[in-house]
Design a protein around this nucleic acid. Structure first.
Lengths: 117, 117
DNA sequence: CATTCATATGAATTAATCATCATATGACGG
DNA sequence: CCGTCATATGATGATTAATTCATATGAATG
């Protein structure tokens, strides 16, 4: 495999950082936890996904410390690491404002790009 | 396909944002452009990758406006959108400092996780 | 206008990631 | 200790993304 990333460089860290956040399910989780802490079951219900899927997707979020867990009796309460996440959202917000005003292709999810050429 | 992401929500924008940056080749490009603007050939040489691969990977970076192009004679000079990228790097840096001090599993790329359990 | 330099494109293979289902763990209540 | 509520795990098939190779475009130069 290619050894593109310089050892201990910022971009080495960045890879896991970004790939963890580049998934719709995980972003959905983050978005919900932004409102309030929740447990897995609540997340699964609200996102209309299987519990196991939410569980699987929570793992990388926790591993990267984007989400914290607090064990409360038989429940596990998940909460967002706001200190890291809010500034990130703000940057993206600014970026979209300034560089993707129409959002036509810049940051919009256009799957299958029907008719694009 | 699942419609997890709320329409026009932040996380809808975030998906392309993050997935564009969650690739080692593209992060390598970004890291180089952080030093100085370069053309495709220079990027390919420095990263020891095929020119076509760099070209392919530049496309999403440009589409998201993380990288700008300036056409100069027969060359295309690529440069980094520092306004967006530098704050991002700073946040990650802080995050790693505070939440991943040992970096053991937090943001380290541990492919194949040999022997991990 | 043929050649070379610089870059882009497309199709096809390969690789990485996800979702899914079935099942396991674990803690608590009765 | 049996049931059930809450969550996690593992293996596998499916989906998506990335790399590669071959080739195309395009602009300048002799």
């Amino acid at each position: 495999m290619n050894v593109i990333l310089v050892k201990n460089s910022l971009s080495e860290n960045c890879h896991l950082f970004f790939s963890t956040l580049s998934n719709p399910t995980r972003l959905g989780i983050v978005e919900l936890l932004r409102e309030a802490p929740r447990n897995v079951t609540q997340l699964a219900e609200t996102l209309h996904q299987e519990q196991s899927m939410i569980s699987h997707n929570l793992k990388p979020l926790i591993r990267c410390r984007f989400v914290f867990v607090e064990k409360k009796w038989r429940e596990h309460i998940y909460s967002l690491n706001r200190e890291t996440m809010e500034p990130i959202f703000k940057i993206i917000d600014n970026h979209v404002e300034k560089y993707c005003p129409s959002k036509g292709s810049c940051l919009k999810i256009n799957k299958k790009q029907t008719g694009e050429r």
